[in-house]
Amino acid sequence: MSASDGVAARAVDVWKEYGSGDAAVTALAGVSVELERSRFTAIMGPSGSGKSTLMHCLAGLDDVTRGEVWVGDTKVTGLRDKGLTELRRDKVGFIFQQFNLLPTLTAEENITLPLAIGGKKVDQAWFDVVVDTVGLRDRLSHRPTQLSGGQQQRVACARALVSRPDVVFADEPTGNLDSQSGAEVLGFLQRSAREFGQTIVMVTHDPNAASYADRVIFLKDGHIVRELLSPSADEVLETMKHLDSVQVAGSQVVQHSGSSRV
């Protein structure tokens, strides 16, 4: 796999099973998907569909039962602890529902923490672009307790992007935010893909949040069953309502609007 092929991450016939024998649970059942560079992709599905499991496997946070996962030119499958640590530090950014900021550090120190841990210098020009885009210029000296929830999540977003990772994975990033703060964060993620070429992959249950994405992938029972390109919130909601009617037994079924890379 070459980084020049336009794919930031991919899963190839990925299975994830928990337990064994009669107690075994299949969370992912032969999922194959390519995530294109410089695009904002949302992953949706009902509870238990496998959406969070897929993101965790793609990000190297969980191993797969069989199949392959790649991030850029790195084959994630089979990496040992050191390789996984380097992957998460150098190639992947994370934004979680909980902001995960260190309370003793300022906003600026929280943003640059991944670079400090990796012994890397801050690219000041890129740092300035990120900080100004998220509107944190006048908050850099503040600690998390001095920031609103929306501001804290924007610090987390800036932290995820400052190292220019291959992919930023966002797990329900607006789950703890009010609608205005959530819209600001989603707008930033959208701009990050469209203006700065960042690859964003977001798990969400919110149709409005998914409507900010360029592409929405829907899972059911561990299968990718549908995708939409540049959808409205109403289209996402309507698709979610009709997922129960999609049959997935025996094979992965994909229904989509527009072109697809699945």
Rank of each mutant, 00 (worst) to 15 (best):
S38F: 02
S38W: 05
S38K: 13
S38I: 00
S38Q: 13
R39I: 00
R39E: 14
R39G: 04
F40T: 10
F40D: 14
F40N: 09
F40C: 08
F40P: 12
T41A: 12
A42N: 08
A42Q: 13
A42G: 11
A42C: 14
I43M: 12
I43K: 08
M44P: 04
M44S: 09
M44L: 15
G45F: 09
G45H: 04
P46M: 03
P46N: 09
S47G: 06
S47D: 04
G48L: 07
G48P: 06
G48Y: 06
S49G: 08
S49D: 03
S49Q: 06
S49I: 03
G50D: 01
S52V: 05
S52T: 15
T53E: 07
T53M: 10
T53N: 06
T53V: 13
L54E: 03
L54W: 10
L54Y: 07
L54R: 07
L54N: 02
M55D: 07
H56A: 15
H56D: 11
H56N: 15
C57G: 04
C57E: 02
L58K: 10
L58I: 12
A59E: 03
A59I: 12
A59C: 04
G60Y: 08
L61M: 15
L61W: 12
L61R: 11
D62L: 13
D62C: 12
D62Q: 14
D62G: 08
D62Y: 12
D63M: 06
D63T: 15
D63K: 14
D63I: 10
D63L: 10
V64E: 05
V64S: 04
V64H: 10
V64R: 10
V64G: 04
T65D: 07
T65G: 06
R66G: 02
R66K: 15
R66M: 07
G67E: 02
G67R: 07
G67N: 02
G67H: 09
G67D: 05
E68Q: 14
E68I: 01
E68K: 08
V69W: 03
V69M: 04
W70G: 04
W70M: 07
W70F: 14
V71M: 06
G72R: 03
G72K: 05
G72D: 05
G72M: 05
G72H: 02
D73Y: 01
D73S: 14
D73E: 15
D73G: 11
D73F: 01
T74M: 07
T74Q: 12
T74R: 15
K75A: 06
K75V: 06
V76A: 00
V76E: 00
V76P: 02
V76I: 01
T77W: 01
T77L: 02
T77M: 00
G78V: 00
G78Y: 01
G78Q: 05
L79F: 06
L79G: 08
L79H: 09
R80F: 00
D81M: 00
D81P: 00
K82R: 15
K82I: 01
K82N: 05
G83I: 06
G83C: 13
L84W: 07
L84G: 12
L84N: 05
T85M: 02
E86V: 14
E86S: 13
L87K: 11
L87T: 09
L87Q: 10
L87M: 11
L87Y: 08
L87V: 08
L87R: 05
L87W: 06
R88T: 12
R88S: 08
R88E: 12
R88F: 09
R88L: 13
R88P: 12
R89S: 13
R89F: 09
R89K: 13
R89V: 09
